[in-house]
Amino acid sequence: MVDLLTIIISKYNYWGYIVLMMIGLYAMIVKKNLVKKIIGMSIFQTAIIFFYVSIGMKKNATIPIISHGHDGGEHAVHAVDFINPLPHVLMLTAIVVSVATLGVALALAIKVYQQYNSLEEDEIDSQIKVK
């Protein structure tokens, strides 16, 4: 029983990211509305970022900013005391790029709406087949 609890506590964050990723994938596969698909894409991206941040986590460690002062002087920095900063760096740029791709995707959606006067995939399909 205690074993099961430790497994759950040490793994539930990964399960959370998988659930979020599957929500995003489901929206991208099944939903017919283009804005819903874009929301699904954004959820997928944040799920991946969540995974990266989770694997950078360390227990009993503090945020990756070294405390310093003019009078306190330098003291030795141990890697165990600080959370891994590398995934944070990679994901920080990924978030800003995700908003850039979001802008382009919404621009495409507006263009499709101007052409076909609808955002639903099946209606756009039927209009393409008629032509």
């Binding site: 804005v35 929301i39 944070h88 920080l92 978030i95 800003v96 908003v99 709406y113």
Partner: peptide, 29 residues
């Protein structure tokens, strides 16, 4: 989880600007 920089970025980008983008795209369609 201690990722303060990522959290700050997400609060300004995800909760701020991308919501405005979605609202403006919905307003135009």
């Amino acid at each position: 989880m201690g990722a303060v920089d990522v959290s700050f970025t997400e609060a300004s980008v995800g909760a701020g600007v991308s919501t405005v983008f979605f609202v403006s795209a919905v307003f135009r369609t």
